[in-house]
């Protein structure tokens, strides 16, 4: 079957069996290799994408499920929340091998975008990805830094009014 959906703001079509995982359509057909394969079972989060605003595991999402939906991958993320998350990740020097990090950054961007006033604890509780290098302390720092940046920006914007 051919499935049409919006990928990073553009209309695209993917061809495959209805139950075929979105992950491989993104990686092999549509060139989005920032979406990583880790477990194929929804356990590790390396393949996290954002479907209509919600963090979603692309390996557990079938092509049939995404017709007409809005999918954002790490390649298509932009805007103040994403930039604050990346800046936090960079300042905390979080990635080591880096393979799981796009999944973490995508998940964090989705969670923070949904509630910029969330506490670091509540953001972290929603990051269920796995990092084999064990960068968890740095990720905690990165999330804290991202939230601080967004709050400082919000204060500045408020003060400028």
């Amino acid at each position: 079957m051919t499935v049409e959906f919006n990928l990073n703001g553009r209309k695209v079509a993917a061809v495959g069996a209805p139950q075929s995982p979105l992950l491989w359509a993104l990686r092999d057909e549509l060139g989005m290799v920032g979406v990583k394969f880790g477990c194929g079972a929804g356990l590790c989060g390396a393949c996290t994408v954002i479907v209509d605003g919600a963090q979603t595991r692309a390996c557990q999402t079938s092509l049939a499920d995404i017709a007409g939906k809005n999918i954002a991958t790490i390649e298509g993320l932009s805007g103040p929340v994403f930039e604050a998350v990346v800046a936090g990740w960079t300042r905390a020097q979080a990635p080591q091998c880096g393979y799981c990090q796009p999944g973490f950054v995508t998940a964090a961007t989705s969670v923070i975008a949904a509630d910029q006033n969330a506490t670091p604890e509540s953001v972290l509780a929603q990051l269920t990805n796995i990092c084999r290098c064990g960068t968890y302390d740095a990720i905690r720092d990165a999330v804290g830094l991202a939230l601080e940046t967004l709050r400082a920006d919000a204060r500045k914007a408020g003060g400028a009014k």
Binding site: I74, V86, T90, Y99, P102
Partner: peptide
């Protein structure tokens, strides 16, 4: 390598 890895731009063999 940190920023490209966070942005999903670092390339692995896969």
């Amino acid at each position: 390598d940190v920023a490209p890895k966070a942005r999903g731009q670092a390339a692995y063999a896969i």
